[in-house]
């Protein structure tokens, strides 16, 4: 029995020593015991949309708002022209991460295209930066509008 107690003490000691190693201690505190990730904090927020927002961030909110505008404006078959990330950064829009068309479809159920996508001609809306570091949704009404945007975007590489 004494030996088993000794082994139990060794077990406890080795766990304590293991998690005292700075790297593992940091891992434990930041990844597992972090209050923002704790069960009690997260349990208060069980709504599916809220969980998506907290995971995908601000960009997800913007894309959902875009989808909301599509619905309220009753735009038929909306296809969004996505600006290149570098284009937005240059215009001081820093908090919006541009996602690829597949992920936009996952978020909203609506189609999006890059300037170099095969179906770019079908784009009828675009996200464009305003002067306050934000983006606004703009309707593309003429082929000239679309061509102008594509020409402006072509200077930027799509990551």
């Amino acid at each position: 029995m004494h030996f088993k107690i000794n082994l139990t003490l060794i077990a406890v000691l080795s766990i304590v020593l293991f998690f005292s190693i700075p790297f593992y201690n940091n891992w434990l505190n930041t990844n597992l015991l972090n209050p923002s990730l704790s069960f009690w904090t997260l349990y208060k927020q069980m709504d599916i949309e809220q969980r998506k927002i907290s995971r995908f961030g601000y960009s997800y909110v913007i894309y959902k708002e875009v989808a909301g505008v599509f619905a309220s404006a009753k735009i038929k078959n909306p296809v969004l022209l996505l600006p290149p990330d570098a284009f937005l950064k240059e215009r001081r829009v820093t908090n919006l991460a541009v996602v690829e068309p597949a992920i936009f479809y996952y978020f909203t159920g609506h189609k999006a295209v890059w300037y170099n996508s095969p179906g770019v001609a079908a784009a009828n809306c675009a996200l464009v930066p305003d002067n306050n570091g934000k983006v606004v949704l703009k309707r593309i009404t003429t082929p000239e509008d679309l061509n102008n945007m594509i020409t402006a975007y072509k200077k930027y590489k799509i990551d």
Partner: peptide, 11 residues
């Protein structure tokens, strides 16, 4: 999904 632009992914 296959009707959207998937040229940036091979997933």
């Amino acid at each position: 999904v296959y009707s959207i632009d998937l040229h940036t992914t091979n997933n």
